[in-house]
């Protein structure tokens, strides 16, 4: 069994492996157009908005936008570490702090929509006729109805925590389930356990596995959900593509950009409203 020719065939096989690894990695290394990396939220990506507006931007400027969709907390962390050229999130307080802390230089309001309270169609806490969002949250807590929380330090999670605070409720009992997941996973889980949850309207409209879930409460001012674009400080991260990111930042609030945003529909319903 042990033949000497094995040696040369071994070398040949080795050579083939090296060649294959080299070729494969070489094709991977070939980069294309100029591009920026955009840190944004799962709500904008999963709603399909970027699919609608980015091609328009790329066609006009030749700049490719590569979206990394994460929770708002992680998006800030990415931008602080210098791993993203641009930032589009929905946490006004956080965005302002980002600039105050010296990471960003300019923030612009790009678009808005609202949060909605979703729950099982039976509505055990009776929130459908609640007087306000705060009232609805209080009713859920009083009924001790199952509530699914993102629990991931995202913009939606932060908004939810603010609502609980204003409602004077300390969530954390058995009925309150912190999932530590993105919007979609939270919707899936809530659908499976008939729980209430707070969702941004875009994710809700794009969600396809609703089962018993329905929209139960909407329209309160405190549910306002604003999306902002932040320019990152070039002095802190000189390696980033600030020129290209600036073009994106300006385009979003330009007439063309705002029109593109307002034209996006899911099932005939407008998802994001421009300013």
């Amino acid at each position: 069994m042990l033949k000497n020719p094995g040696r040369s065939r071994f070398r040949r096989t080795l050579g083939c492996l090296v060649l294959a690894a080299g070729l494969l990695s070489a094709t991977i290394a070939l980069a294309g157009k100029p591009h920026i990396t955009l840190a944004s939220t799962t709500s904008t990506e999963q709603s399909g908005l970027f699919h609608h507006i980015i091609p328009t931007f790329t066609e006009a400027t030749g700049i490719e936008v590569r979206v990394v969709a994460v929770g708002t907390g992680q998006a800030f962390a990415m931008a602080r570490a210098g791993d993203a050229d641009a930032l589009l999130v929905h946490d006004t307080t956080g965005e302002k702090r980002f600039i105050e802390d010296g990471y960003g230089i300019e923030r612009r309001e790009v678009m808005y929509n609202d949060f909605v309270i979703i729950g099982p169609s039976g509505d055990p806490a009776g929130i459908a006729d609640a007087e306000s969002a705060i009232d609805a949250m209080q009713r859920i807590a009083e009924a001790e109805a199952a509530f699914a929380s993102r629990g991931d330090d995202s913009g939606t999670h932060r908004a939810e925590l603010r609502l609980w605070q204003e409602a004077g409720v300390e969530p954390g009992s058995r009925w309150y389930r912190e999932l530590g997941s993105g919007m979609g996973a939270t919707l899936n889980t809530a659908a499976a356990m008939d729980a209430y949850l707070l969702s941004d309207r875009a994710s809700w409209l794009g969600f396809r596995n609703r089962q018993e879930l329905v929209l139960l409460f909407e329209g309160d001012e405190v549910l306002f959900n604003a999306y902002g674009s932040v320019l990152i400080d070039p002095e802190r991260h000189p390696h980033l593509k600030h020129d290209l990111a600036g073009k994106w930042h300006d385009w979003l609030v330009s007439e063309v950009g705002q029109t593109a945003i307002s034209e996006y529909r899911i099932d005939g319903e407008q998802v994001f409203l421009p300013y």
Partner: peptide, 9 residues
């Protein structure tokens, strides 16, 4: 993973 989170099971 993305399609799952969009509920398009």
């Amino acid at each position: 993973a993305l399609e799952t989170s969009r509920g398009d099971l």
